[in-house]
Simulated scan of single mutants.
Amino acid sequence: MKYKVVLPVAGLGTRLLPATKEQPKEMLPIFAPDGRGGTCLKPLLQLVFEQLYSYGFREFVFVVGRGKRAVEDHFTPDAQFVEELERRGKTEHSRMVSEFYRMLSDSVLTWVNQPSPLGFGHAVLLTRHVVGNNPLVVQAGDTYIHSDGNRHISRVIEVFESTGADAVILLKRVADPRIYGVVEGRSIGGGVVEIEGVEEKPERPRSDLAIMPLYAFRDSIFRALEEVKPDKKGEIQLTDGIQKCIDWGGKVYGVELDAGYVMDIGNPMSYWEALQTSYRLASENKQ
């Protein structure tokens, strides 16, 4: 299948203010291997892109909003910058930047504007004319998920293609599901759950299976999101679109993340934890 990857990065990042007043939260750095046995810092969004590129995806749709110009600038190759690094003798830095630019040049990047932050589901819906009837992979731009050999991605894609599902979602069991989207369903073996219902940040969760922000969808998700009404904050939630697919009789499955790390930089404490986890993984050369 030919997938298009949707990366919503239009959120305001208010929980990380004032650091994110001018700098998009997705561009905040975490640690990564430098390719020579050491560590370096990379914007989290760059790591997300590189991981999806290494899996084999080549078409990316970035959903950006006001104040996100830094994202487009970073993802635009700059030959003069590389030349300046080489002139100054910064050969290792030049090598890392050049490798990133090689990936960009080998990919098709499309930019979609979300003028107002009207929700994760709204961001996905805005890409419908770019994605067309292709299957799509959606990953939040502020969360990096690590597993050996990118197993979490391959599992999601394998279940998506083998079942003919309308949607497949990455899941993880958590101690407090109230801050996540939560699913209810029945296990069908092999760490796969047939999902019967989803709910965004419930006060009384029906399970401990939380949604991690990696999804595979068919284009039916766009029709579902078009039918979703805004929530109390005026936002269109992706979970509501998924529930609409279920209500229509669509097949929706979840894949449990059995081993791996989820680095979410949505708030100061989770960002601090992401820095610690990424440093440990980078030092072990496991990212």
Rank of each mutant, 00 (worst) to 15 (best):
T91E: 09
E83F: 07
T91S: 13
R151F: 13
P115Y: 04
T91I: 12
V137M: 06
H122Y: 09
R95Y: 07
H93N: 03
R69Q: 06
F81C: 08
L109I: 10
V130D: 09
F100H: 02
W111Q: 04
S147M: 06
L118S: 03
F100W: 10
F120L: 14
G65P: 06
G149P: 01
H74R: 07
Q114Y: 10
M103I: 13
F120Q: 13
S94R: 10
M103A: 11
S107Q: 12
N133L: 14
E92N: 04
P77I: 06
I145C: 06
R102P: 01
G119H: 14
P115H: 14
V124Q: 02
F81A: 14
V108F: 11
H129V: 07
V137C: 02
T127Q: 13
Q139T: 15
Y101T: 03
R66G: 13
T127M: 07
G67M: 09
V138T: 11
H74F: 03
E72C: 00
G149Y: 00
T76Q: 09
L118Q: 05
G132R: 15
R102H: 08
Q80F: 13
G121R: 07
V108G: 08
V131Q: 15
G121D: 03
D106F: 11
G67S: 10
V64P: 01
F120N: 10
